[in-house]
Design a protein around this nucleic acid. Structure first.
Length: 800
RNA sequence: GGGGGCAUAGCUCAGUUGGUUUAGAGCAUCUGCCUUACAAGCAGAGGGUCCGCGGUUCGAACCCGUGUGCCCCCA
């Protein structure tokens, strides 16, 4: 926003900058809420909260002071990015990395022998070690030379010393795995004051930190040489001097990434500076325990490992940020650098007075830095209910600990871990029971969505294009907990198509609204007696049981946070079981009435399907729920009915029916029987009664004009074997016996191989002895079934 | 440099205590259908040494080891 208006941050004072920041917040902060509403998040929109709200802000400050008093907050040194022109620290976001053509200088240092005496130095002889650097001016701050301990070239030098060229300061040669053997010469100069990584090494080996630079980028007195001259001037000047003294071995062209200040475009200088820290060890202990002992459950659980590793090796938390927007650190300084921590400048001055300060309140200055954004966010689970500003209030008592945190795995340390710590520190209790980690959405190339890449999908645009429910569907179907999802619009298309399907179901059922017949008992062709209620008993009973079964499955999945699986299951229930099977089974003929009982049951089923689907697709399901019948209640608040038991035998019968229908359709297809051509179907089975109950369905589904029961083979027919039963398709079509035979042989081969594998298992004595009886029984059943199928197929082959 | 993860159909991915009729879905592909809810659809089909190797086990996509290739987080 500022950039658009041509304003730079440095041209503004702090107060003016904050004005702009608030303006931005008011304008854009609402956009994300708008998006959440549009995608159907079911939240209490009257109770949004912001960490910079007055009361929350004060709580953050209170917590800082509290932790400081407890001794958990302290000041310590840390490497930061320094802008030598603006003479200010930069946040990481303000550093712009550019690829730069540099030179890599190979410099040779004089070394000592084993007893620490200098070896004679010559540009090529034994008495030296060569390092490579792009910043030769920093050698004046060297504290050590480091080599990889496994590097044969330098093993003899471990424990010896080297001398910094030109100033001859004696520094140790140390071995550490940090050094890469194949970069440069394999020997690294260590300059703790001017390089992040070198600083770490310095800490590890307790090396001297020699700050050779002033805050304006000129050399300091500690450098001994070139004092007061600019770092880049020094780089130019030092090379000829090194060359003259025989230290310069060679120069190479080298491309590297260098950080530039966003504000002044000068090269950023890593610099040690005083920052604020929170010590973490004590707070981490209960937070680690909570997750390891499953008082707090991670979904998926694989993140427990990650969490444990981090918590066991936790480092102190640097909470100061060189920013203006945020919670300003409540530390106050006198001009000579003394400081106190206090809620206001007045309180700070009171503290200074106790220390008999010579300064006036006007001399006191507050810390310029702000707190890390997570230092406010970690209080969220309780302070959002004002649990710290108004301890023990009714809301925090009711809501805390909260149920489930939904968040991204990338902030498991930044946010999740710290909320848990803050929960135990300030509430003496965990902040939530479950943590659900969503996947990170990536683009088709697998890249993370980011503002700078500009590859984030335009959510509102996608909603316009596909609909909110379709977008929700597309994202949820593809994202099991904690796995990244590659954003692919084809999943949204699937969602859109599903919406379309649901509308069409509504359309179909609506067509039946004024077209019901009383329940009739259609006399079946063969005169067998059917139930007095309806000929659709089987379809109704089957779907009702199937619905109850899926409800149980979905319930189980939801409890375990397996959301994408739950959605897939519901999707398949609606599209396959309800639409492709059930509705086709009960659908009356053209302009025929539907039986009242069937119609009413169908309404109930469809409503229940909408309720099952509602959490995933709230808009369309709510709409259909109300369009279907006048309703006083809303799906979004409707309680879910208790789960009901289901009858497995009827589900099995349904599966068999589906299998028979598919097999017969396949046979029709393969024999080029046109969809419109009717067939005569002859069934050879031991269970005639079973087929009679589903005869009407079967006739409709395979377009048969007649179904009879045969006691033996029917000649000149297409033979289809399903389980132990045989089906003979009689048609006017010329039969292609070769194709039929090939099909049967293929099937026979498959069954035989299967039987073979089962027999091999059962023939293994150790299997029969060790496996559980149920498993062995199952194998025996597989054997019997396979043998029966083989017999059927063989008989069919003989008939050809 | 430290840590974590992934590898299953052409593509994107499911597959939870190792045994569920010798692996599932969507998309893509092929065949046949404009069949009065739906062509954004219907009915079918094909497609997989579950990354390589070794081990544990009566039994491994699943557990262990190892190799290879990718990804992420932290520094």
């Amino acid at each position: 926003m500022l950039r658009e208006r041509g304003i730079t941050k440095s041209s503004l004072g702090r107060d003016e900058f904050l004005q702009y920041a608030w303006e931005w917040k008011e304008k854009y902060g609402g956009i994300i809420l708008q998006q959440l509403k549009k995608i159907g998040c079911s939240l209490d929109w009257d109770r949004t909260s912001f960490t910079m709200d007055d009361e929350y802000y004060q709580t953050v400050i209170k917590v800082f002071i509290d932790l400081y008093k407890k001794g958990h907050i302290y000041r310590g040194k840390r490497m930061i990015n320094w802008d030598v022109r603006a003479k200010t620290a930069l946040s990481d976001e303000e550093v712009i990395y550019k690829e730069v053509q540099s030179k890599l200088y190979y410099l040779r240092y004089q070394i000592t022998d084993e007893s620490g005496n200098p070896l004679p130095f010559s540009p090529s002889g034994d008495g030296g070690i060569t390092i490579a650097t792009v910043r030769p001016e920093t050698i004046l701050g060297d504290s050590a030379i480091c080599v990889n301990p496994n590097d044969e070239r330098y093993k003899h030098l471990h424990g010896r010393f080297a001398f910094v060229p030109l100033i001859n300061r004696k520094i140790p040669i140390i071995p550490d795995e940090y050094v890469t053997m194949d970069f440069g010469t394999g020997a690294l100069k260590v300059t703790p004051a001017h390089d992040m990584n070198d600083y770490q090494l310095g800490q590890k080996y307790n090396l001297e930190i020699i700050d050779t630079m002033n805050d304006d980028g000129t050399m300091s007195e500690a450098a001994q040489l070139f004092i007061g001259e600019d770092r880049f001037e020094v780089r130019k000047k030092i090379i000829p001097q090194l060359e003259a003294a025989g230290h310069l071995v060679k120069m190479e062209e080298y491309t590297n990434q260098i950080g530039f200040s966003e504000r002044t475009d000068v090269v950023v200088e890593p610099r040690l500076s005083l920052q604020w820290w929170v010590s973490m060890k004590n707070m981490a202990a209960p937070a680690l325990k909570a997750v390891m002992h499953e008082e707090i459950n991670f979904h998926p659980a694989k993140f427990k490992n990650l969490y444990r590793h981090w918590m066991e090796n936790i480092k102190d938390w640097c909470i100061s940020r060189q920013l203006w927007w945020g919670h300003r650190i409540p530390a106050y300084y006198t001009p000579d650098g003394e400081f106190v921590v206090a809620a206001s400048i007045e309180e700070a001055f009171d503290q200074f007075k106790i220390q008999n300060t010579k300064y006036k309140i006007a001399d006191i200055r507050q810390d310029d830095d702000c707190l890390d954004t997570w230092f406010s966010s970690w209080l969220w689970p309780f302070e959002v209910f004002k649990g710290l500003s108004h301890p023990g209030n009714a809301e925090v008592k009711y809501y805390y600990p909260t149920n489930t945190l939904v968040t991204a795995p990338e902030i498991i340390f930044f946010w999740v871990a710290r909320m848990i710590m803050a929960g135990y520190e300030y509430m003496d209790e965990k902040p939530f029971n479950d943590v659900y980690f969503t996947g990170i959405v990536r683009d088709k190339q697998g890249r993370k969505m980011s503002k700078s890449l500009g590859n984030s999908p335009d959510l509102l645009g996608l909603i316009d294009q596909y609909g909110a429910d379709a977008v929700r569907f597309g994202i949820m179907i593809a994202s099991p907990a904690g796995n990244d999802i590659l954003f692919d619009e084809s999943a949204l298309e699937q969602g859109r198509n599903f919406n379309n399907k649901l509308w069409n179901v509504l359309k179909l059922i609506k067509m039946w609204e004024g077209r019901q017949s009383p329940n009739v008992d259609v006399e079946p062709a063969n005169g067998t007696h059917h139930s007095p209620l309806t000929t659709h008993d089987f379809a109704l009973a089957w779907f009702e049981n199937r619905l109850n079964q899926v409800k149980s499955q979905v319930n189980e999945m939801m409890v375990q946070f397996r959301l994408s699986e739950a959605l897939k299951t519901i999707y398949s229930l609606v599209w396959d079981d309800f639409c492709s099977w059930y509705l086709e089974w009960i659908k009356p003929g053209f302009e025929q009435p539907i039986e009242k009982a069937v119609y009413e049951k169908t309404l109930v089923y469809f409503e229940e399907l909408m309720q099952l689907l509602h959490p995933f697709m709230p808009f369309i399901t709510e709409e259909i729920y109300h369009l279907l019948q006048d309703k006083k209640d809303d799906l979004c608040v409707k309680q879910v009915a208790p789960l009901q038991a289901f009858d497995k035998s009827i589900l099995k019968a349904g599966d068999l029916l589906k299998q028979v229908i598919s097999a017969l359709r396949d046979a029709r297809n393969k024999n080029q029987v046109k969809p419109k051509d009717t067939i005569k179907l002859h069934i050879q089975t031991a269970d005639v009664a079973d087929y009679q109950t589903i005869e009407n369905i079967l006739r409709k589904q395979v377009n048969a004009e007649l179904i009879t029961y045969a006691s033996s083979t029917v000649a000149n027919t297409i033979v289809v074997a399903v389980e132990k039963d045989k089906f003979f398709i009689e048609t006017d079509q010329q039969l292609d016996t070769a194709t039929l035979q090939a099909e049967l042989l293929k099937n026979l081969d498959h069954q035989k191989k299967f039987l073979e594998s089962v027999l091999k298992k059962l023939g293994n004595e150790r299997f029969v002895q060790n496996a559980s009886p149920e498993v062995v029984d199952l194998e025996r059943k597989k054997q019997a079934d396979a043998e029966a199928r083989i017999k059927t197929i063989e008989e069919s082959l003989q008939n050809l």
